[in-house]
Design a protein around this nucleic acid. Structure first.
Lengths: 334, 334
DNA sequence: GCCGGGAATGAATACGTATTCAATCCCTGA
DNA sequence: TCAGGGATTGAATACGTATTCATTCCCGGC
């Protein structure tokens, strides 16, 4: 025996008005006399009426749901991102359908779910969309935006940090502080973030006449940073600085080096990327690049909202700057 | 000009069958001849048909959505929890409506959202439900379960760690390793987890004749641990161990003490709670209590599914054990 | 007291699916 | 060949809301 769940019909009957009036009271917008409004609200309160969002979205064709596809929630950078997205979207009256993807490219089944639930927009963090996938969203009139990634320039909207310029500045900083032998511990070589950071870093070094850059590939994990740093110093004892693809790698690298008896920054300088909370902790005090998280999220939400309002809008790509955060993991070697 | 989104009607027309048949193909369960099934699938593929989950849930009264209310996603413990929940629920065909609450008690508006979206069940982590709130879910026939918290024993289902027993064992361990002067850095004094951990810790100490326990109250943050530890040693120079309400506090405490020139564990021992990933990092190597995360999540999902299937089921409370993880933040003082 | 007009209201309908119920199909066995 | 019966199928309807359109209400101005 399942419980009776009251509908606007029930409320209407109890309040002595039509269902249409009840709908008007709850949907807002249209005028209802003060007298009836009160009656309706009283009746609704008595029955503990809650409107049915699914029925509503069936007629309005608006679900007020945003799909958010994430990877690496374990990375504090992304859990912070999720928190801020929730904050901004809930203020706008949107709800979040959460998907934790595991792949570089969003899966077919995940896309289908988002379409079936008729989300108004999709935010994809740290993952990509294949062309057919992007086409599917497009056909279903669902706005999509990549966060912290981009694909082809014309393919869709994206908000991300100018990793290329950032990496250049980091290289400059390491050169200016007198470093000679450079290493880069990268994330997966398929990601645009990794590639751009590597590109900027390498180019600036080459501009300054440094053509020797040792690269250790891996993924964006602590364990990877740990092992990679150890391997680097084992194979190249003259390395005096490491630029890490992100902060988690950098923290792992610092610990890996310490285990081997190296001192950071006295023996080796380390630079990260992201400025996650932990990089400020005194045990690490990591020099890193701060991505302007809140502004990135704000920009993402703004673009997405525009696209939802105007489906035909042209894709927008927004490049953010960020800034260097200097702490104590780099030592001047002049 | 908004795009045409195809419906089962359109597919039916193209395939030369009735809408009912299309529905049967996609809903599964009922028999459809192989011939027509093929026709329908072809037509659906041609139109890129995706069924509308909202319309479906309107007739089936099943949304296949679980609401998950979290706090402190920033705490790696909870982001790991979210990841595992996603994993388990998606396998079962459920989707997640994500809510990031900020309060000790789930807010009225958050509850309304969950009810409006007709979630089949709600998982609440690290937060509580007022009686009226719990009553509301009940009236709407929505199954609810608390994760890592409990309220009144008969009020609803819950899965959590036996914090009381765990704290007792931790106290025992610290006593056995020869500690004399104990401090406890707590989380918010309103949470059952905090209270139970304190209770167990204090009781065991008292059983062994130690009646002096210094308590520093705060919240479950790194910063709190940092400051609290510093204040503790400033006011009580003879403290030789600290039991922290969770790992994040413990990591903060370790760093706070190090800044003050103390050595952990040589000067002061530290014990945490949760066994988050970072506590294994060599910079901390924190002795802590491991909550059996996966089993807790599995148990939560299992109970929730049973309640969804059988709405009249009695509330179930499941107490988990967990185990001590001994690393290097405690020193024997014998 | 009456008229005009805007505001408020209700009846009816659409949204896209699942499901019931009656009708039809197809196949088997005689 | 035909009857019988289970498997398929389609027409119709319900789900709970928003919205259109026609109707009614109410009020001020004459």
């Amino acid at each position: 025996m399942t419980k009776k769940i009251y509908t606007s019909e029930d409320v209407a009957r109890l309040a002595g008005v039509s269902q249409a009036t009840v709908s008007r009271v709850f949907a807002g917008g249209t005028a209802v006399s003060e007298k009836k409004r009160k009656k309706v609200l009283e009746a609704a309160a008595k029955l503990n009426y809650a409107l049915n969002a699914h029925a509503r979205s069936l007629t309005t064709r608006r679900t007020r749901i945003i799909g958010i596809v994430m990877r690496n929630i374990g990375n504090p950078f992304y859990s912070a991102v999720l928190e801020i997205f929730y904050d901004r979207l809930s203020v706008l009256g949107y709800h979040i359908l959460f998907i934790n993807s595991e792949n570089e490219e969003v899966k077919e089944s995940e896309i289908r779910q988002l379409i079936e639930y008729n989300v108004e927009g999709v935010i994809i963090t740290d993952a990509l969309l294949s062309s057919p996938a992007s086409e599917k969203f497009n056909r279903s009139d669902i706005a999509v935006i990549l966060f912290n990634r981009y694909s082809a320039p014309s393919k869709g909207s994206a908000v991300f940090c100018d990793n290329y310029m950032a990496a250049k500045q980091i290289a400059t900083y390491l050169l200016e502080t007198g470093h000679r032998k450079f290493a880069f511990i990268s994330g997966p070589s398929t990601t645009s973030t990794t590639l751009d950071r590597l590109k900027g870093f390498r180019e600036r070094l080459q501009q300054k006449g440094v053509h020797d850059l040792i690269i250790e590939a891996g993924d964006y994990t602590y364990e990877n940073g740990f092992r990679s740093a150890q391997e680097l110093v084992t194979r190249h004892s003259d390395i005096d600085c490491m630029f890490c693809g992100n902060d988690i790698i950098a923290l792992g690298a610092m610990d890996g080096l310490r285990i081997f008896g190296y001192h950071v920054p006295d023996d080796i300088s380390i630079v990260g990327f992201d400025n996650i909370r932990m990089s400020a902790w005194p045990s690490y005090s990591l020099t890193t690049w701060e991505q302007p998280l809140e502004e990135m999220v704000d920009a993402t939400v703004k673009i997405l909202m525009e696209e939802i309002k105007n489906k035909a809008a042209k894709p927008k790509v927004k490049l953010m700057k960020g800034k260097m955060i200097i702490r104590n993991s780099v030592k001047s070697r002049k």
